Amino acid sequence: MSRSTPYQPLLLRLLHGISGILAIAAIFSGFLVYNTFDGRFGKIPIPRIGQIIDIHGTFAVFFFLIFPAFALYSFHAGNKRLLQSNSLQNLTQVGRPIWWVSWQRIANTLMLIAAVLAVLSGRMMQEQWLPTGELNHSWYLLHLSAWVVMVFCLAIHVLMSSKVGGVPLLLSMITFNIRSEDSPTHWLNRLRHWLSNLSNNFGVGINQLRQDNIFLKIIEVIVVLGIVTALILPLLLSSGE
């Protein structure tokens, strides 16, 4: 592979690929759950799948397991693909390359927020709600809304990726080529270096935060807190019953 050909880090390809497959599977099975038990906004006349809630839940659990690693990678090593301090301003440059890139970054960021909302609300739902027709619980409505946002952002992500980088960019996400400096043998040292930098920068002032894109930092905190809440809140509530 030539250096002029788009190249994506191996870890990004793995996290992006696995989380993407699981997210799409969860989105599709989530629609089947809605189609089977809800359908208030329209439905498709397809055969009912008896265990669709369990199938959807399985995909969602595996997505929840990989999502924290993908989110942390996105907010740090992949932060250039997320919301930048000038992204909203660049939306005025309609039709220019930066306009397409800005929409892609915004969609990527919204997808992370929607994903954590979907995970949290899904964890807080009770399996018997939908089969018994209890369709107006706040957690279910939040889950449904997060599903809509994820579908919308996924469509923008694919469209803008095609527009920004074309076929070469899309193919670069599924190539098996690995550069020597991208070998998994270097991952542990890079993790240690990242943790060291994170510790050194823990006491950074507000001025530095502004320089480092404070809006993205705030979103990262929201996503991380959402992941932690999704992990412990159901356990706390179940133990209190």
Rank of each mutant, 00 (worst) to 15 (best):
A25L: 15
A26Q: 09
A26F: 09
I27K: 07
I27V: 14
I27C: 05
I27L: 15
G30M: 03
V33A: 05
V33E: 06
T36S: 15
G39W: 07
R40Y: 13
R40S: 12
R40K: 13
G42D: 06
K43R: 13
I46R: 05
P47T: 05
R48H: 15
I49G: 01
Q51S: 14
Q51M: 13
I52E: 08
I52Q: 07
D54S: 15
D54C: 13
I55S: 01
H56E: 06
H56K: 05
H56N: 11
T58W: 08
F59H: 06
F59I: 03
F59A: 09
A60F: 02
V61D: 05
V61L: 12
F62Q: 01
L65F: 11
I66F: 03
I66C: 01
P68V: 02
A71L: 02
A71I: 02
A71N: 01
H76Q: 10
A77V: 04
G78R: 00
G78Y: 00
N79E: 08
N79R: 11
K80A: 07
L82H: 00
L82I: 02
L83M: 06
Q84W: 04
Q89D: 13
T92P: 02
T92K: 15
T92R: 15
T92M: 13
V94F: 15
V94E: 14
G95K: 07
I98C: 03
I98S: 04
W103P: 03
W103R: 08
Q104L: 12
Q104D: 09
R105M: 06
R105S: 03
R105P: 00
I106M: 04
I106T: 01
N108P: 05
T109F: 03
T109C: 07
L110A: 08
L112H: 04
L112V: 07
L112T: 01
A114C: 07
V116I: 11
A118K: 02
A118P: 02
V119C: 08
S121N: 03
R123P: 04
R123Q: 13
R123F: 12
M124A: 07
M125G: 05
M125Q: 10
Q126R: 13
Q128P: 02
W129V: 04
W129L: 08
P131S: 01
P131Q: 03
G133F: 02
G133N: 04
N136L: 12
N136P: 08
N136I: 12
H137D: 06
H137K: 10
S138F: 15
L141A: 13
L142R: 01
L144I: 11
S145H: 06
W147F: 14
V148E: 09
V148N: 07
V149P: 00
V149R: 05
M150P: 00
M150Y: 05
V151Y: 04
V151M: 10
F152V: 05
F152H: 01
C153L: 08
C153M: 09
L154C: 13
L154K: 10
L154H: 11
I156T: 05
I156M: 14
H157E: 06
S161V: 09
S162N: 15
V164I: 14
G165V: 06
G166E: 10
V167W: 15
V167D: 11
P168V: 05
P168G: 08
L169Y: 07
